[in-house]
Simulated assay, not measured.
Amino acid sequence: MVTIRPGPVNVGGVELQNHLLLAAGVLGTTGASLSRMLLLGAGGVVTKSIGPLPKEGHSGPCLVALEDGLLNAMGLPNPSKEFVDELAPLAKKPVVASIFGGNPEEFAEVAGWFSGKVAAAELNLSCPHAEGYGAAIGSDPALVEACTRAVVRTGLPAWVKLTPNVTDITAIGKAAEKGGASAIVAVNTVKAMRISTGLRRPVLGNRYGGLSGTAIFPIAVRCVYELYEAVKVPIIGCGGVSTADNVVELMMAGASAVEIGSAVHGDIQVFEKIRAALYAKDGVMASEIVGCAHG
């Protein structure tokens, strides 16, 4: 396996401790859990998605473990503005606030709460199971551009997290870039569902949810590959990463860094394990492999 030489990592205007980030929605609900993931080897962390108003989320079941991933329909539960205080102990750490809203004005409002308190804002324009938010907005290039532009005006670097549940992800990526995005995160979960044959009903309370984990890794690779040929801003790969070789593969597709989420569910030490296998003093420079799979 290819190994990478350790060194400074700057992606999308954020100084990271390494190329690995905790993805939004996984152990990102408190300052303590975010601090813990940094101590356990994450090079940066992304918070739970925070919106303009408190939300309780969908009724359960909200999370189901499958043989090859996780199926969830949380419904963006969050305490809204109260969450900002959780980040006080993490000042000057590589923390990215995941934010959502129903329109550009709401995105700007929420981003403003975090201005000066986090390294960047990650726009959740991709959640597949929250009506009026996420992918409902993120499938419209004009809205993606407008929401991105609104956050950029707050002064925070804007990372835009895209949904794979569109016909042409490059059109959405180009819209984010046009809006001033500092980086693109690809991808969020894939819209999916399972049905309990015993109960004769969907396993999730919301019926539909988002599939994450190893099952969607090939989708993430394809999306990153396509985006690398369509945009010039850095791409952060996300979706089913569980090994150091997965990280290298996404980087070869075009990712400058990688987010890890569902793998944490199976192994809380996953960041340290991947970091130990990924880096070596005699490894190649990361810049040598980012996008190298493009002929």
Rank of each mutant, 00 (worst) to 15 (best):
M1L: 13
I4C: 04
P8K: 15
P8G: 12
N10G: 09
G12F: 05
G13V: 07
V14A: 02
V14C: 08
L16A: 04
L16R: 07
Q17P: 03
L20S: 04
L21R: 00
T29S: 09
T30N: 15
T30H: 04
G31F: 05
A32E: 14
A32K: 10
S33Q: 13
L34M: 12
R36L: 07
G41K: 12
G41Y: 00
G43V: 12
V46C: 13
T47M: 03
K48N: 08
S49T: 04
G51Y: 02
P52S: 15
G57N: 05
S59C: 03
G60N: 07
P61C: 14
P61G: 14
V64N: 01
A65T: 15
L66V: 13
E67N: 14
D68H: 14
G69N: 13
N72H: 04
N72S: 13
M74K: 02
L76E: 06
S80M: 04
F83V: 00
V84N: 00
D85G: 07
E86Q: 10
L87F: 04
A91R: 14
K92H: 11
P94S: 05
G101A: 02
N103E: 10
E105R: 03
E109Q: 15
A111V: 15
F114N: 11
A120P: 01
A121V: 06
L123N: 04
C127W: 04
P128A: 08
H129G: 12
H129A: 11
A130M: 10
E131C: 03
G132C: 06
A142E: 06
L143C: 03
E145S: 06
C147E: 09
R149Q: 10
A150Q: 14
V151Q: 13
V152D: 06
V152A: 14
G155N: 02
G155D: 09
W159I: 05
L162D: 08
T163A: 02
N165A: 11
N165C: 10
V166T: 09
V166K: 10
T170H: 13
K174A: 00
A176H: 00
G179Q: 02
S182A: 07
I184M: 09
N188R: 01
S196V: 08
S196L: 08
L199G: 15
N206Q: 09
R207Y: 05
Y208I: 06
Y208D: 05
G209Y: 03
A215D: 11
I216A: 02
P218K: 14
A220N: 08
C223M: 11
V224G: 00
L227S: 07
P234L: 00
I235A: 00
I235F: 01
D245R: 07
N246Y: 11
V248L: 01
L250V: 07
L250E: 02
M252R: 12
M252G: 11
A257E: 03
V258G: 05
V258C: 14
I260Y: 13
S262Q: 14
V264I: 11
H265N: 13
D267G: 09
I268E: 12
I268D: 09
Q269R: 15
F271I: 05
F271Y: 07
K273I: 01
I274P: 10
R275S: 15
A276M: 03
A276D: 09
L278R: 02
A280Y: 04
A280W: 05
G283I: 02
V284I: 08
V284K: 12
S287K: 13
E288M: 15
E288Q: 11
I289F: 01
V290T: 08
V290G: 08
C292E: 06
